[in-house]
Design a protein around this nucleic acid. Structure first.
Lengths: 243, 243
DNA sequence: AGACTTTTAAATGTCAGACAAATAAAATCT
DNA sequence: AGATTTTATTTGTCTGACATTTAAAAGTCT
């Protein structure tokens, strides 16, 4: 683990990269303790604040965790799927908002990815997951539900669908796509009629999953995608010429 | 932008979160300059090193960039797709290696996602992208190619396929899945015969894309997935009883 | 001896003050 | 006016110190 002494700027970034490389390459394994900040500053020939800046960079990526006190220190973190989820969601959300990704583009990506899970989920979904989906459908049909609550339930429904594929890597990838769509979905106001239509499609999906008909799930997702995009177009149109 | 003075530990994390929230909520917009470190330390009533640790955390997530000198400072970064790619790849790679995700699981996810692009790519792929794919196929058939180079070309091929869908969100999501597979793929040694088989399937995919036959692309990807998983099984078997 | 309490040492968290280096704007000179 | 020098601002880094947390060691009592 060495750093280039010729490039004096961004020492903390170099040190962070050196430690990151050590973790990625397996030189540092999960739960292993890094040398103390004092030892690291001696190893890299920099001051402790510089080492600390490097460690904070790694902590921001959940690559390490720190613990105070005797026998404390910085430890290599097991990057859990949950940690990765939340990072992915933050990143995806910012990516969409900062790059002015259109609703259509985001929607297309989200449904394309979700359809990738359809067949697997039809094969493997558990009774529990199906029950979750039914429960969310029921919640969605409650009167007096706010748009935010409806959206949240929508996310939970699709989350259960994705989890049905029983592949953590897929769930992880989809988490970003589905959750990052929420701010965009929140721009849509769901009328009673549009909610009905969505709930009907959700029910169709649940029915298809119940009989493990992957093709039907896929087809219904296409319908749902088209309907969602239509709703977004309507909102855009109404904005253009308001009443 | 306030922090809780009652929880004295992890001040830098709190400050980072406060600034992060301000960025996500749109209070700080792209390319806006943050207050100087001195001003921030006064605002938050902490020392400059603490502020710096917070800023480094944000820099690690590419949320800000810093510039030295007069009229320098920390600026809100436009989170580009490219920045997000590399972070996603790092995260995905670590996620797979640290959680002992099986080859089958990763492979299944990767191809499921890639198949999600197949139909779109068949519709929209440009002549350029097709040419890239042909070029990579040609490279793959060169004799004396190392396994790493073959893998790299394989990634480039699939990258072009995904980019053909002309949806940056899809490309971003897929980047993680495809690239994170590389360390796992590198465990496979590609014999001359297996390379031939893969190249044949690649050619089939390119041919199908040329005539914009999405279903054929999809079917061939299924074949490729099965073949890849078979190769991995063979490697595992050979390891169990080595000659 | 064993269980409980106190002390101690090690580590991170935070602070204050200082200087170096880069950089753009202002001032100066030709 | 244009080129050069100076200056002020800001980040990057260092030194040294103290606070806080925590586990282990030492001590104490039963």
């Amino acid at each position: 683990m060495k750093i280039d002494p010729k490039k004096p700027a961004d020492l903390s970034a170099q040190i962070a990269q050196a430690i990151r490389d050590a973790i990625i390459s397996g030189q540092l394994i999960v739960d292993e303790r890094l040398p103390s900040e004092a030892e690291l500053s001696e190893q890299f020939q920099v001051s402790r604040p510089t080492v600390r800046e490097a460690l904070k960079r790694l902590a921001a990526q959940s690559l390490i965790r720190t613990q105070r006190g005797a026998s404390g220190g910085a430890f290599v973190n097991r990057l859990s799927f949950e940690n990765a989820y939340s990072q992915q969601i933050t990143t995806s959300t910012l990516l969409l908002s900062m790059n002015a990704v259109s609703f259509d583009t985001a929607c297309e990506a989200r449904f394309a990815l979700e359809r990738a899970c359809a067949a697997l989920s039809a094969q493997r979904r558990t009774a529990d997951q199906l029950a979750t989906m039914r429960a969310e459908i029921h919640r969605q049909s409650q009167p007096g539900l706010t748009d935010e609550a409806f959206c949240a339930s929508d996310v939970a429904f699709h989350r259960a669908l994705v989890d049905g594929a029983d592949n953590p890597v897929l769930s992880y990838q989809l988490a970003g796509a589905v959750e990052a769509m929420q701010p965009l979905m929140n721009m849509i106001t769901f009328t009673a009629r549009s909610r009905e239509a969505i709930i009907a499609l959700h029910s169709q999906i649940a029915d298809a999953l119940e009989i493990r008909d992957g093709a039907k799930v896929d087809a219904t997702l296409v319908e749902l995608e088209n309907y969602t995009r239509q709703l977004a177009r309507d909102v855009a149109q109404q904005r253009r010429k308001p009443a």
